[in-house]
Amino acid sequence: MRPRKKDFVRAISRSFSIQGSWNDRTMTGPGMAHALAPLLARIHEEDPAAFRRAVQRHSRAFNAHPYLAPVAIGALARLEFDGEDPDTLLRFRSALRAPLGALGDGIAWAGWRPFCGSAAAIGFVLGLDPLFAAAAFLLLYNAGHLALRVWGLRCGWRSGRSVASALKRAPLRRIERVLVPANQVLIGVLAALLVGQLPGTGHTVWWGGGAVIAALMGYFIPRHISAVAMASLLAACAVWLL
């Protein structure tokens, strides 16, 4: 049977916990099967054995960005509904993993999240009430987050097998290309504002210049050195205390 609207609502609400049972062996596989279950239950309503097999099939190893997992949920439900054979389903499932991971990392973790976080932080540093800044971050961020999940489920269900070309047509990469450099500017502004606010430093231009140089040094030094620097700071705290 064709899934009803309430099945899609249940699937998307369960997708919020898709990483709830994340593990090194099957990653988000069990969470994926849990989120798909309401749709699978409707599709295989007349055949409980087929439903059980489908749940087992979809609890195998899987991984994708959590916000774009609804794309896979929709597309896999569509293929189940269309009666594709299990081998095709498993191959399709494997093929979805890498693109959904890379796309989600770019748009959500490198793009939208730092953008909203930096904007709210700058607002706070410039005088916004802290509770208002935190609430504004949550509202702005989750507006995009929810929209992405709902769009993903619809896109997956409507596109089915051709979900890859639907993703290619979607403006996600273009949005990422705008957000990533914007985030660099925002992080720079935020760092300079915080440094300028430190008591005892004065608001001198040379101090701001020092911050620019330090930020660029941070940009270019190898990653492991920055970890050593942080550990050194902790050690300095401890030594000074003693």
């Binding site: 985030n183 660099q184 992080i187 502004v189 040094m217 030094i221 620097a229």
Partner: peptide, 25 residues
């Protein structure tokens, strides 16, 4: 400020965005 530089590089690893970071600072 150094940590901001490291974070900026981590988030923009696909391209070289240091001029944007410097402009922001």
């Amino acid at each position: 400020a150094g940590a901001a530089g490291v974070a900026a590089r981590g988030l923009g690893a696909r391209g070289r965005h240091w001029p944007a970071l410097a402009a922001g600072c």
